[in-house]
Design a protein around this nucleic acid. Sequence first.
DNA 1: ATTTTACGTCAGCCATGTTGACTTATTTCT
DNA 2: AGAAATAAGTCAACATGGCTGACGTAAAAT
Lengths: 165, 165
Amino acid sequence: MADVKSGPNPLFLREEDLRQGIELLFYAYRDFTAEPDAMLAKIGLGRAHHRVVYFVGRYPGINVTELLGILQITKQSLARVLGDLVAQEYIAQRAGTKDRRQRLLTLTEKGQELERTLSDAQRARIAQAYRAAGAAAVEGFRTVMLGIIDAEDRAKFQPPGPGKR
Amino acid sequence: MADVKSGPNPLFLREEDLRQGIELLFYAYRDFTAEPDAMLAKIGLGRAHHRVVYFVGRYPGINVTELLGILQITKQSLARVLGDLVAQEYIAQRAGTKDRRQRLLTLTEKGQELERTLSDAQRARIAQAYRAAGAAAVEGFRTVMLGIIDAEDRAKFQPPGPGKR
DNA sequence: ATTTTACGTCAGCCATGTTGACTTATTTCT
DNA sequence: AGAAATAAGTCAACATGGCTGACGTAAAAT
């Protein structure tokens, strides 16, 4: 590969490159959350509710311990928002069949609708960015993002390969 | 192109691809902020203080209105954390010379040290991810992240080109 | 039978966002 | 010169969403 001057050389990382990376994350996250936050405010819910609804939608039948592991918050913090969501019938709970201590969480119809409404803005944003960037850029994006994420959670993003789960 | 099952095709965006994008942002931001948050807690400060210190370090002499524009929070929210930082001498204020109503903000020595300590963990995380991913992936990462960010703020990331600022 | 686990709950605290109203100093506009 | 707009600060009150600590109950595992 020739010495292309516009091409970045991340193996020769400058302070400025790293600052830019930090800022990309700050601005992207800020804008990424702004739309659903505004919708949530109208129905008296917050970002924490969105996260719960999102992950319950993603992993139907997830139990409380698993959800806590994803969100990395305390049981008490989760209890508050989960309580709201169950009371307002966005989320249904049922006892585990194998382990009856567990509360398996699923979205109700109403919850699915909420999840879709909230995340649609985010999906649209991602879709637009992906389309504008092209397939190769998307692959690079994924690779870098995975590198930023703690190793323990990278497995979640592996395609269903040799692993049994 | 053949029907390669592992190859992504972002022009043919599947629900799953978009979900993955949402999750990459969630996990990356979660892990990206965890280390500085833990350091901040030890000295009685929070993430909001970090953001202020970061951007004052990035734009020395920035005024309050500009900082509010970046953070997208209210003046009152900023006042609290900025007040702490000035009181504890992480940040110095001086009146603008051209417009004496402005308070221009700069980091003190102590503030610079704090900024460096806090952001070093983040810089290291970015650097490691960039190095592991390679130059092409980094370029793709930048492109996609810019696509996610609201158009108004994309200009901040343009290299000092034709524009006068 | 004991211990551990999964979950829930009460009580209180802190950080960080919000709105609304108002003041002061300075600059800009007419 | 006088009026209006702007930059910044401030007071008060409130909501959200984290946190710790302590304790309870049911079910599973040892």
